[in-house]
């Protein structure tokens, strides 16, 4: 006996009720449960759908689907970090490294020649933080609109939209900066410090640019490579 389309829908609801919000995991678990229920029916055709389902669900252990979800999330988090790192390395390969070094050099020269060293540096730095927050907020607004229209959620999409664990990049360097400003008096008069700080700001800009601009823009491309079913569902 095969499961009906309605029973398949019931299984999707069941996974949602057990805290599996993402379609990619739901569909795999639904197929698993469906197979298991069908083979239970082969042995004992009198079992009801609910009885068979409960027996199968018990096999997942006391935490239900939580283990599967958590481990999947950890794997995709790692994949996301790898993606960011991959883009980041791009800026140190030819020809982009020329751009990276040129930006550092320009920043260094401007700070060195100007009378408003700290102001220029902090101004740029604050602009970067403001940009990060702006990107986060506008992305959130946009997603709210879309999520109402489309109910299927993909775990990797969520990780991209939450920037993995990397959204701290907008706030953590700020604390480092304050520490440096308070404790290093010749931060912008010593050449070595100035080069270091210029390079740091360029690196931070690259990271912010990748996390808040480059990757979100290519979200659907990454989802298609992560999930072969993504195209199938979104036809």
């Amino acid at each position: 006996m095969k499961l009906t389309a309605q029973q398949i829908d019931q299984l999707f609801t069941f996974t949602r009720q057990h805290y599996v919000e993402w379609y990619d995991l739901q569909s795999e678990l639904v197929d698993h449960l469906a197979n298991a229920i069908e083979s239970q029916w082969l042995e004992n055709p009198k079992l009801t759908f609910d009885e068979a389902l409960n027996a199968e669900f018990k096999k997942f252990g006391v935490f239900g689907f939580m283990d599967v979800v958590e481990k999947r999330q950890a794997v995709l988090d790692k994949k996301y970090n790898g993606l960011v790192w991959h883009h980041f390395k791009d800026f140190f390969g030819i020809p982009k490294i020329v751009l990276t070094l040129a930006m550092t050099f320009v920043l260094f020269t401007v700070i060195k020649l100007s009378d408003f060293k700290e102001w220029i540096f902090m101004g740029l730095f604050v602009a970067l933080v403001v940009f990060s927050f702006y990107a986060m907020i506008s992305n959130k607004k946009q997603r709210k609109k879309i999520s109402k229209a489309n109910q299927k959620k993909w775990l990797f999409e969520e990780i991209i939209n939450h920037y993995g664990n990397l959204s701290v990049i907008a706030t953590v360097p700020f604390n480092i900066m304050l520490q440096l400003l308070n404790n290093v008096p010749d931060l912008f008069t010593n050449n070595y410090w100035t080069v270091g700080m210029s390079f740091f700001l360029v690196l931070l800009s690259i990271a912010v640019f990748i996390i808040f601009k480059i990757i979100p823009r290519r979200t659907s491309e990454y989802l298609e490579t992560t999930y072969p079913e993504y195209k199938l569902v979104n036809l």
Partner: peptide
Amino acid sequence: EGALYPALHKLEA
């Protein structure tokens, strides 16, 4: 099941 799928996902990654 709780061990199989995490293992599959990890090998995929």
